[in-house]
Amino acid sequence: MHNRQALTRAVVSACLLLVSLASMAVDTLPKGLLVLDGREAPPLVLNDLDGERWDISEARGRWLFVHFWASWCGPCRKEMPTIQAIFPKFDASQLEIVLVNTAESEDVVFTFLAEVAPDLTPLVDADGSVTEQWQPRGLPSTFFVDPEGRLQYLALGGRPWDTTEYLRFLQRLVR
């Protein structure tokens, strides 16, 4: 009898441990994401390819996926289709994808995106000065800005955003 109770306790404990580990896994950041210190995001006021002005100070109340890239950068080219793939999965009022092209001409940007990410309209940092202010660790880099305008996470390099691990992270942000 005692043996059976001990066994039951052991099984229940094991189950609780598994549930706990699974829960921890959900809360764990995917590979390549750094937690930032929550400082205020730098200014970001740029025109997009259609000439529309976008200002980060007017984008409070939603998470921002601020992605710096250039078409000459190999990992950027590889990553961009995964951003295109997640674009329709999120309501921009909850998670807005903000692409910032670094220092390329509008023709180059348009030609590249028309092929690999036709639904995305990037901001154009024509002389690269806004990118310099944000100080990404390289190109590509993605910052996550919370609804209060603070820097919360940084993705190191290109990430496969359309895979389960990263989608789960993005879904957790907007939950």
């Binding site: 590979k31 390549g32 750094l34 250039a70 000459w72 950068c73 670094t102 220092a103 390329e104 001409s105 024509a126 002389d127 690269g128 000065s129 990118t131 310099e132 660790r137 390289g138 190109l139 190191l156 390099g157």
Partner: peptide, 28 residues
């Protein structure tokens, strides 16, 4: 050379210092 091109060139150079985190890559 224009400022935009100077910026592009700068991004193609290896950073002088980088605290490379686990599983992070850098090139330049």
């Amino acid at each position: 050379l224009s400022q935009a091109h100077r910026s592009t060139f700068g991004w193609t150079l290896m950073p002088e210092v980088r605290d490379l985190r686990l599983d992070e890559s850098v090139g330049g």
